[in-house]
Nucleic acid binder design. Structure first.
Lengths: 121, 121
DNA sequence: TTCCTGTATCGACCGATGTCAATATCGGCC
DNA sequence: GGCCGATATTGACATCGGTCGATACAGGAA
């Protein structure tokens, strides 16, 4: 386990919106990893369940939301963690997760179609 | 081929930002399809190359950007088209593509983390 | 220490996906 | 009509990815 995201795929900023200028090969490869992490119905729901809470979410609260085995959910959470989308921490018996807003913000900005100025800001 | 997107996966609006409320199973399944379409380095670059232009893009201009066979690029373009992310039209010998901004806007809104009001609008 | 509950890892299975070569189709042109 | 260049479709192949059961690990409680 890890206090923060173990493999912070998205270290820091990266690339302007898709519509601003052609993305580089390297940026495309890195972003595709993150997008693959969210491109799954189960992980989308996990991410949403975690993100929609004000507080950290216990894995034990996520399990009953799905008709899937515990190892499968654990696997999906690991995927989200390795993509830098969520963080997790064990506290006693339970493991709690939270979203990393910067990761969502980057994806939101990636698909931004605003045509005006702005730069990377 | 098709003048517009043949399988408009994203018919119209759908779902608030992930962080606002837990997404439904159906919405998650539908959004995952669209996200799978962009969760590939080649398709991300294709989308960006098309989106970053002011005018429609000829497929013949896209091919030399990649070290991939023509059928492979054609296949990826079809994937983007079926996801409702781009439109295509044949004009004479060539086929031209353009992005569908509403599709990008939806993805951008999906990952929005703004906490305040807003509704769907 | 020993048990018990919550979570992670392992190994296997199988369907989905990216890629190519071969071939088909579409339109323009001669 | 017949040819040719641009794009699409087909079929095959290899790899990837989601799922499970079995099992390992962590930590609290008795």
């Amino acid at each position: 386990m890890s206090k923060q995201n173990p493999l912070p795929v998205i270290a820091e900023e990266c690339c302007a919106p898709l519509a601003r200028e052609p993305i580089s090969k390297d940026d495309a490869a890195e972003l595709a990893k993150v997008l693959k992490a969210v491109a799954d119905p189960v992980r989308l729901r996990l991410l949403s369940l975690i993100a929609a809470r004000d507080e950290e979410t216990c894995v034990c609260d996520l399990l009953p939301e799905f008709d899937l085995s515990q190892p499968t959910i654990s696997h999906h959470l690991k995927t989200l963690r390795e993509a830098g989308l969520i963080g997790s921490e064990r506290r006693g018996t339970w493991v709690y997760s939270w979203v990393i807003p910067q990761a969502l913000d980057r994806l939101s900005a990636l698909f931004d179609t605003a045509r005006e100025e702005a730069g990377v800001r």
